Amino acid sequence: MSDTTTRALSLLNLLQTHRHWPGTELAERLGVTERTVRRDVERLRDLGYRIESSPGIAGGYRLEAGSAVPPLLLTDEEAVAMAIGLRVAAAQRLVGGPETTLTALAKLEQVLPAPLRRRVNALADAVQPTGIRTGAAVSSEILGELALACRDRERVRFTYTAASGEITCRRVEPYTLAPADRHWYLLCWDLERDDWRTFRVDRLAEVEHTRVLFDPKPLTPEQVEEFILVARSWVRTAVETDVVMELPFQQMQEAFGQWGQGASVEDPDRTRWPVGGQDFRETMYGMAWIPAGVEYTTDLAEPSRAELRETLERMLRALDAAPPAAPRHPSASSAA
């Protein structure tokens, strides 16, 4: 393999790992001049790769979908079959390492021409794996777009439909995609709210790439896990109630952290916080986390209200009663 071919393949690999590359950085990485980079880009274009170039200080190169599948040693049928398989694997979490699946899917769909993409969309909708517990339907095309944005650290816009039915337009800096309980979640920095937010991917639509890059704000793996855990807890439950606590909103947010999501200002001195669970016991557990000394009221409905009261009264009687006698253990002599 000639040096020219090797360099062109190295250039192609770089173009596939980021959405946009400045010409100067490509030249530096490859150890050549920018003029040589331009010649190698033209060679790749001749092979069927559609590479968009933009002039200026912030200019550079990006790999786009072309009119035909570039030479990946795949036929159209093989490319369609591979894309469908990756979509199913991503949506159903059939393999470990979701980032690997999404990265492979994003790389392939990035270069699929429009006719083949339409075939993939049509066939993927008809493929329904059996024997697998699924969550809400997720657009694997949107998963691929979000995976690209997470990989490239690119701001995106999208519309989001909340559980309440409210539709909003969001502008975010995507951080990571994470699967949990057969749902996909996007963890990102919400530019309008100036805070971290987690969105259910099945409620996302109209993802738009802005081509504006960003430096991600730092998060530890433990923080990411907590964000996803909180997001998983925000589902409709059998028992739901609000508590209004004698605690200003800012102090409540500081005390509860991410678990304070959903809270709202009741008045300058009080905060309203939704609590839910599968039964009154889980609701009681949630209310038990209200800080010590903070008074609150709740609109817990019957029969859960009566069940909780009866349970608490028995607990109080148990605490007020004399403790049970210590268990009697046979002596060593009697045991002999």
Rank of each mutant, 00 (worst) to 15 (best):
R93C: 11
S54F: 05
W289K: 15
D215G: 02
R29W: 03
S67E: 11
R236A: 06
T237S: 05
V243E: 02
G31C: 07
L63W: 03
Y61K: 01
R270N: 08
R197P: 09
C169T: 07
R314F: 06
A205T: 14
W273C: 00
T75M: 11
E295T: 15
S333Y: 12
S67R: 08
W189S: 07
L94C: 08
R87Y: 05
R35W: 05
E295S: 12
R62S: 15
R50G: 05
A83S: 15
E154N: 13
D46L: 09
E266I: 00
V111I: 15
A255C: 08
Y285T: 04
D320S: 13
E166G: 06
H209V: 08
R193Y: 04
I84K: 05
D242T: 06
Q223E: 15
F256M: 14
E25L: 08
Y160R: 01
P22W: 06
A137S: 14
S140A: 15
R119F: 03
F256E: 05
L74G: 12
R118Y: 12
T297P: 07
L300M: 09
A292K: 13
L146K: 04
R193H: 11
S233T: 11
G31V: 08
R38W: 13
L63N: 05
R93E: 13
E42P: 00
D242M: 11
R153C: 14
L204Q: 06
W196S: 01
A321D: 12
M284N: 04
F249E: 04
R151C: 05
A114H: 07
R45W: 09
A301F: 03
W273D: 00
D190C: 10
L148A: 14
T311I: 00
R119K: 14
R45S: 12
S331Y: 02
R170G: 10
V111H: 04
P216A: 02
E28M: 05
P268M: 08
P327S: 10
L73H: 11
E145S: 09
V80S: 01
P55K: 09
V80T: 08
M252F: 15
D194Y: 12
I290N: 10
A231D: 07
G96R: 13
I290M: 12
P248W: 03
A263I: 02
P174Y: 04
A301C: 07
I132M: 10
Q92M: 12
R200K: 14
G56C: 03
E302L: 01
P330G: 11
V120Y: 05
E145N: 02
W234Y: 08
P179Q: 03
E206I: 09
L86R: 08
C150H: 03
R151A: 04
H20Y: 14
E173P: 00
S10N: 14
G31M: 03
L187D: 09
G59N: 12
Q128H: 14
R117E: 12
G257V: 07
G262I: 01
V275S: 00
L105K: 05
P115K: 10
P129K: 13
A79N: 06
A91H: 01
L102R: 06
L102S: 01
S2V: 02
T283D: 01
P221V: 02
A58P: 00
L86C: 07
T24Y: 10
M315N: 09
A89W: 01
L143N: 08
Y185V: 05
T75G: 13
A325S: 14
L191P: 03
M82G: 06
Q251T: 04
L148E: 15
A68K: 02
T159L: 06
